[in-house]
Amino acid sequence: MSNISSPASRGSAVLHLLWTTGPSAAWITLFLVLPSLYLVSMAFLTNGTYGQPEMPLSVDSFRQLAGYGFLGWSPGNLYTLLRSLYYTLFSTALTVLVAYPIAYYISTARPSLRVVMLLAIVVPSWTNQVIRAFGWMNLLAPGTPISTLASWLGLASPELGLYPSSFAVMLGLVYNFLPFMVLPLYSAFEKLDMSQLEAARDLYASPLRAFFAAILPQTLPGLLAGLVLVMIPAFGMYVVPELLGGGRAMMIGNLVATQFADGSNWPYGAAGSILMLAATLLGIWLLRRLGRRLGGGEEVVI
């Protein structure tokens, strides 16, 4: 029956909708939608002398983004894009591998203990991400026990240590996003029908086959939600590559930010922002589609 009840006519219901949601909608429109549109439009302007966008309209910024500069085409930006994708996919895969057993293990604990365990997983992500990256810098710098061990094993050179490096960036990404994979997977495990797993262990014997036959299909909604929560922000990450990559492991977010800070080429940076936005929307769209096709779409929040 109607929730918009009482002697409220249709008109006053609309008024109610307006005064409750209007201020927020106006706020987001004014302070995020308009700025984004401005940024998007900026990509079609010319780069002025001081890095400020100017008329006339041009697509120079997109040419630049594609790698065409004064000296002809260079693959630098393409590499950055591919590197971003590679870091994102690789660290997401690692996150999934770590999160699955953790989520399962938490779901096997006593209910009162589960709260504590979940909190233990989440608490590090409540600390400031700059501090967390700084912690890793301290751990991985040349001369630290971990770096020394790595160089002794032949995994890193003694002078350079493990940081700054691609390895440090991916480690930082996994570290950052692990809780966002554990939480949705845990809630999937909580609902998991264990009799199916037992039946699967009976029928297929090998744990790996049991995983693919019984666990994966049932935890798929959680996995997809986790992928949305990990992949999308990982791709746009700024702090981790900036601090742990040391300039050699730049991701797309750093490329864009540089154009507004040191580089001062706003149209070029704006073109990069468009690329990031497009990638984000594409990612969400793909994951939602995948979710629907696999029948777990409803639980994918975004």
Partner: peptide
């Protein structure tokens, strides 16, 4: 019947 009751209560018009 429930609608009638709600109209009596004033919760629906």
């Amino acid at each position: 019947k429930t609608t009638l009751l709600r109209i009596l209560a004033g919760l629906d018009s």
